[in-house]
Simulated assay, not measured.
Amino acid sequence: MPYSSWALCTSTASSLDLLPTGVSGVIYPPKVLNALRERGDEFMRYCPRADDFWLHYAAVASGVETRQVSETAAEWWPSRPRQKGLWHENFANGGNDAISAEVARAWLVE
């Protein structure tokens, strides 16, 4: 399913299928932080401008489910940005789909 069609989280249930974003902050347990430390700056090879995917797959590879602390997102982009930037590069042009697939391979296959 393309990233652009993913629904926002509306639950506090934990899952490996949730992609936490740093818009309102994310807290990761030591198990995930240790996995990240072991990989060093390898994320720069795969997703230097989309770190949420790197963090997500570090959690998945570590077997750590994530959850939202309330049933609705605390903050989200209310509308599409007018300027070209990460939104245009990663979201509007389907870049997040390619990034997600490559990062998943880096964490879950290697």
Rank of each mutant, 00 (worst) to 15 (best):
H88N: 12
M1Y: 10
G40V: 12
L33Q: 10
A74H: 07
R45E: 13
A50R: 00
G94N: 06
F53K: 07
F53P: 00
V109K: 14
A58N: 02
R45H: 09
Q83Y: 10
N90M: 11
L36C: 07
F43M: 02
K31R: 13
G25H: 05
W76N: 11
P81Y: 11
A58L: 06
H56P: 02
S70G: 11
A13W: 00
H56L: 08
A104K: 15
L19V: 14
G40Q: 05
N34E: 14
N93V: 04
L16N: 00
V103S: 06
A59Q: 04
W87I: 04
P29G: 12
R49S: 14
A98I: 10
V23I: 15
F91E: 08
R80P: 03
A59M: 01
N96C: 07
W107S: 08
V109N: 07
W76F: 15
H56G: 05
A104C: 01
V64E: 09
T12R: 08
R37I: 03
A73L: 14
A35G: 04
R67E: 07
T21L: 11
A101Q: 14
G95F: 05
A92Y: 04
E75I: 12
G95Y: 01
P78D: 08
A106N: 04
T66Y: 04
G40K: 00
P2L: 06
R45Q: 15
R80S: 12
M44W: 00
E38T: 07
V103N: 08
L18T: 02
A7T: 10
S79P: 02
W76D: 08
G22S: 13
E75V: 12
P78R: 12
N34C: 07
T21M: 15
S24T: 10
E89M: 08
S100K: 12
A35M: 07
F53A: 15
T12M: 01
A73N: 14
S5W: 04
D52R: 03
E38M: 11
C47F: 07
G95A: 09
R37D: 13
K31Y: 00
R67M: 14
C9S: 13
T72Q: 11
T21V: 11
S24W: 02
N93L: 13
E71D: 15
N96T: 01
R45Y: 08
D97K: 00
D41F: 09
V69W: 09
W54N: 05
Q68L: 10
E75A: 15
R45T: 15
R82E: 14
V109I: 07
G22A: 14
E75K: 12
W87E: 02
M1C: 12
T21D: 06
S15Y: 06
Y46M: 05
E42Q: 13
E71V: 11
V103K: 03
R39K: 15
L86Y: 11
P81Q: 04
R67L: 09
V64N: 04
E102C: 09
L19P: 03
S5A: 10
S70F: 09
R49H: 11
R82G: 14
E65L: 05
W87V: 03
E102Q: 13
F53Q: 09
E42Y: 01
Q68M: 06
E102D: 14
E110M: 05
